[in-house]
């Protein structure tokens, strides 16, 4: 038991970051599901992985550059906007479906990232932690980043929630422009994915957006309940995942996914039992 408490002390930044992210995801992920865009974070991780590798390479040549807070974000923003523009160009020029164009560009981004990894000797434990996630690698800076992203999410949600929810029932409303609401929704999602990659890893970060929101959407009787239940199950999953990963010595991200699946399984059994 003492060992467990000691470990939790070591993981406090990761745990707190998880708690802040778990809360902020609850305000965006249900809308992602309702917009039938649940694969978006998965696609985004491929692009952000390239951004992370670029940041890693730059920091190798200019070690002091990322000591300034928030300097990674312009690079991440540049790579993401460049890839998004490529998706748009591909969609328009070749008249492709959006998901097809997204698939092409995100695979290309991942391919380039892998080439950069092998050619610039980036293949180390840090890379593995980006791929699979780790509570230990989360620093106090990451924790504060998660906190301000959670605050930003709440602010944007408060301002644009009526437009986000309207898009689940209507394509267009007279006199209402959805451009800013959509742009900020995507910007917040990108930030959330970027920050949570360290915690959950490129491979499993999208699970944070899907499992619990499905649960919230299935069990909530209205929008407030849906968000509350999504947030609550996020927190339970992250806390339970931490303990499970420590007790059974398994990766944190997979432990969280297992916990999330467990809540879904309970829901499934309850549904069958009720019918």
């Amino acid at each position: 038991m003492t060992e467990l408490w000691l470990s939790l002390g070591l993981l406090k930044y990761g745990l707190l970051a998880g708690v802040f992210l778990g809360i902020s995801f609850a305000f965006t992920s249900p809308f992602l599901i309702l917009k039938r865009n649940s694969l978006f974070p998965h696609a985004l991780t491929h692009v952000l992985f390239l951004a992370i590798i670029l940041i890693s390479i730059i920091s190798e040549y200019f070690p002091d550059i990322f000591t300034y807070p928030l300097l990674e974000y312009p690079i991440m923003g540049l790579v993401t906007s460049f890839c998004t523009s490529l998706i748009f160009v591909l969609k328009r020029t070749f008249r492709l479906y959006e998901d097809t164009a997204t698939s092409i560009i995100t695979s290309l981004a991942l391919g380039i990232a892998l080439i950069l990894i092998t050619k610039t000797s980036q293949y180390d434990t840090r890379l593995l932690s980006y791929l699979f996630g780790s509570l230990l690698t989360v620093t106090s800076k990451d924790m504060f980043n998660s906190l301000w992203i959670a605050c930003l999410t709440l602010l944007v949600f408060y301002k644009y929630y009526p437009l986000w929810i309207t898009q689940t029932t209507d394509h267009e409303i007279p006199g209402v422009n959805f451009k800013w609401a959509n742009f900020l929704f995507l910007a917040i999602l990108t930030l959330q994915v970027f920050i949570s990659i360290k915690l959950m890893g490129v491979l499993l970060v999208s699970s944070l957006f899907v499992f619990t929101s499905v649960l919230g959407l299935k069990t909530g009787n209205n929008v407030k309940q849906t968000i509350f239940l999504t947030g609550l199950t996020n927190l339970f999953s992250i806390l339970a995942g931490t303990i499970v990963s420590l007790v059974w010595d398994i990766p944190f991200s997979s432990a969280v996914v297992l916990c999330m699946s467990f809540w879904l399984l309970i829901l499934f059994v309850l549904k069958i039992w009720r019918t």
Binding site: I33, L163, T169, H171, L217, K218, V223
Partner: peptide, 27 residues
Amino acid sequence: PQRAGDLIDFLTPLTVKEFLSLPAKWY
């Protein structure tokens, strides 16, 4: 709109009450 409700499915969490109050928030 035409085919109103086409976007709505079993996961849509909005209640009728919440839905009716939306225009006040848009405008």
